[in-house]
């Protein structure tokens, strides 16, 4: 759509929402902006504020940032001790790094399992394609928590996997309460998020390119390496983000499947808040965690905007 057409195309909206009738338009914008400002943006600012307080006994259990002294003087007290502690205490540093490691490894494993699945579904014939796609989406609609629980029953010491191993005379393996269980848990629960974007890019892939490549004498793996894989990079990127970002902050999986030595930043935040009731420290951990996710978030946002904007033009 060219620039000159824009006024004509949006004419009726201009009637209601244009300069002459700004109220209707303002109302439509105002409601979501107000809600998201009050309940999404302001809370993040509050977290940042409280991360600069220290734990105190009382309700609420943190020190006041602003205190009114004698004669009405307002005093601002900021503490950097929480951030200092996060940087110097190995607990937080380890949790931070192992969250990134666990999320990254799980993402790669999910990609390795999800790619062939997405490829197979994209190449399947019509009724089958829909059935397989539905089978991928189905677990996503069932409860996340119950799927993690199902997995724990599967991997338990006297669970199904060890039962099967026992048939072949293999000793039971300790899987639960290890980092391995956390990897499996993340891959298991987030696999649909990897498969769906991969499927979307692979199904749009022009088959004639693959045929041309084969006609020119390329071996299947060469075709895959030089055509299919590069063309599916947007799907790989989207799927990886959708697994990596939530995995970093994951709480349920490390707490139900991992052992006491499985440190993840989401679990540390939870314990800081619920077990130690140290709200300022938990807030500082949240701010630190935001730093890891903010870059991928911005990349996601830009990619999403590009897709939506591209379609309207």
């Amino acid at each position: 759509m060219s620039q000159s057409e824009t006024p004509l195309r949006t004419r009726w909206y201009t009637k209601l929402f244009g300069p002459g009738a700004a109220s209707g338009r303002a109302l439509v914008i105002f409601a979501p902006v107000a809600w998201l400002t009050v309940f999404f943006v302001v809370p993040l600012a509050v977290v940042f504020g409280i991360s600069l307080a220290i734990k105190e006994f009382g309700r609420p259990p943190y020190s006041d940032l602003l205190t009114v002294g004698e004669g009405g003087t307002v005093q601002l007290t900021l503490h950097l001790s929480n951030y200092l502690r996060i940087i110097t205490d190995p607990l937080y540093v380890t949790a931070y790094l192992s969250s990134i490691r666990i999320a990254a490894i799980s993402t790669i494993v999910a990609l390795l399992i999800g790619y062939p699945m997405a490829y197979f579904i994209a190449r399947a014939r019509d009724p089958w394609r829909n059935v397989l796609l539905m089978l991928v989406i189905l677990p996503f609609w069932t409860s996340f928590l119950l799927r993690v629980y199902a997995l724990s029953g599967f991997m338990r010491g006297n669970g199904v996997i060890n039962g099967l191993l026992g048939i072949f005379g293999i000793e039971p393996i300790q899987m639960m309460q290890t980092d391995f269980a956390v990897y499996v848990g993340i891959v298991y629960t987030y696999l649909p998020f990897m498969v769906l974007p991969l499927f979307t890019t692979l199904v749009k892939l022009d088959v004639s390119l693959l045929e041309a490549s084969a006609d020119l004498g390329a071996k299947p793996w060469q075709t895959f390496w030089s055509i299919t894989l590069p063309l599916s990079l947007p799907g790989i990127a989207a799927g990886s983000m959708l697994v990596f970002i939530p995995a970093i902050g994951e709480f349920v999986i490390p707490s139900l499947l991992g052992g006491p030595s499985t440190l993840m930043i989401g679990r540390v935040l939870w314990d800081e808040f619920f077990s130690n009731t140290n709200w300022p420290r938990a807030s500082a951990v949240a701010v630190a965690m935001l730093l890891i996710v903010v870059v991928p978030i911005m990349l996601m946002q830009r990619a999403q905007d590009a897709v939506v904007e591209g379609r309207t033009r």
Partner: peptide, 19 residues
């Protein structure tokens, strides 16, 4: 604002709203 909550870790959303 409309897309950031999609990728915000649950623990941060929960903590920030509680505070």
């Amino acid at each position: 604002m409309a897309s950031a909550p999609l990728v915000m870790p649950d623990v941060i959303t929960g903590l920030s709203l509680l505070l």
